[in-house]
Amino acid sequence: MPILEVENLCKTFGRTSVLKKINLSLEQGQALSIIGSSGSGKTTLLRCLNFLETPDAGIIRVNGETLFDAADPAAQKESSIRKKRLHFGLVFQSFNLFPQYTALENVMLAEKLLAAERPDFKAKKKEILEQIEAQAADLLAQMGLSNRMKNYPHQLSGGQCQRVAIARALALHPDILCFDEPTSALDPELTGEVLRVIRELADKNTTMIIVTHEMAFARDVADHVIFMDDGTIVEQGTPLEVFENPKEERTRQFLSHYRQG
């Protein structure tokens, strides 16, 4: 059974139809790359998966559980959405770190708040918090940021900020981690360190959806590639299929821009 199934997902903003019957599925442990020109609906798709936008039609299923069904209002209750979001993690293009918290605090904050809702929190508070801190420190170490844990975001480079943001998303153990152009806001010389971290995650079989304009990276790291244009999935397949033998003219055109560039 796929870990993620999306069926006929549609989203319109006013009169513009941004997602037109998107269907996709993703297996546990796989990395899916989504490529496509600006405005093709990639961000909107990720935002729908993370419940930042409400689709107009379609179904989102994780591990067989229906998280969203546009036809079933009961599956859209605001109170349950918060917990459903936790199936997904999202790394933003612009990091969106919390500026008043250190790197370590950024990683710990959400987990602490969630832990406080546990029935045994009062009794085991100290133990739980120590465990959260140890895990957060560990994640930051994996990101190569052991010596930056006490720094505030404004004291970090863009690449370091994005790695903190990745650690922050990982701290909640999402089933599926989404990246929305994680290196697009970075200076070129800083993209490498972020891509390296994502590649390591892929090597550990983290289930991921990566929207990116880094074609070489997408091809390298993904198990499956989707090319989107104008709100539809034009073509999908293995990296080899999509990058080497694209069947669709639109895919060829899109890729040729990158070959020349």
Binding site: N50, R82, R85, F88, G89, F92, N96, L113, A169, L172
Partner: peptide, 27 residues
Amino acid sequence: VPIGQEEAGLVLGMTKSQIFFRIKLLQ
């Protein structure tokens, strides 16, 4: 306060009031 701050909080499973008091208020 940029909208991204609220969205980051939402994605991390925070409630509206946690987002207001823990993230946005000080900013």
